[in-house]
């Protein structure tokens, strides 16, 4: 096994284990750790493929931003006097059927199209990214800025409402 495929396998195992922990952990802190492992593994995949800027952005925005935001929400919402709060999960057969069926369907449909291994990386730097963002993707870039502004305003409006509404 070459170093590249070993890195790919390790990242894949960490991502799947983190995803499973996020979905199945009964403990809030374990769920947060699982989500963190998953997001770190995805950032690792990006860096491994050569999309370094995307990996760093993933690290900053997700691990540094979204995960911490989620931890704060957990601390604000799950206040129990005794010990760590438990998360309830209602396992049922139909959910397994939906998720498993979708998995089989998509993998079967795409197995001929998607190559098994990604053996070469991107050779782009931030210059190509900047040229794309300020060239063909300029409208998307501006829309993303507007979207973030709208999200900010919406969050302020939602949080200001409080109990009286």
């Amino acid at each position: 096994m070459s170093v590249e495929s070993a890195v790919f396998t390790v990242l894949g195992i960490v991502a799947v284990a983190g995803g499973l922990a996020t979905v199945f952990a009964a403990d809030v802190s374990r769920m947060a750790i699982g989500l963190g492992a998953f997001l770190l593994a995805v950032a690792g995949f990006f860096v491994y493929w050569g999309a370094t800027f995307l990996g760093v952005a993933q690290l900053f925005v997700y691990v540094g931003g979204v995960l911490v935001l989620m931890l704060f929400a957990i601390m604000l919402v799950h206040r129990t006097p005794d010990g760590s709060p438990r998360l309830e999960t209602r396992h049922d057969v139909s959910a397994v059927a939906v998720a498993g069926g979708l998995f089989v369907m998509v993998v079967t449909a795409l197995s001929g199209v998607v190559p098994d291994t990604v053996d070469h990386g991107l050779v782009t730097g931030t210059t190509e990214l900047a040229e794309a963002l300020l060239g063909p993707m300029l409208a998307h870039f501006e829309m993303a800025g507007v979207l973030l502004l709208v999200a900010l305003v919406v969050v302020v409006v939602i949080m200001r409402g409080g109990d009286e509404r």
Partner: peptide
């Protein structure tokens, strides 16, 4: 090549906005 990272960046921005609004609603 630059577009790949650009599209990925857009998804990250969308997910950040979604998480912020979703957690505020929660």
């Amino acid at each position: 090549e630059g577009m790949v990272e650009g599209v990925g960046l857009m998804v990250i921005v969308l997910a950040a906005a979604e998480a912020a609004v979703g957690l505020a609603l929660v």
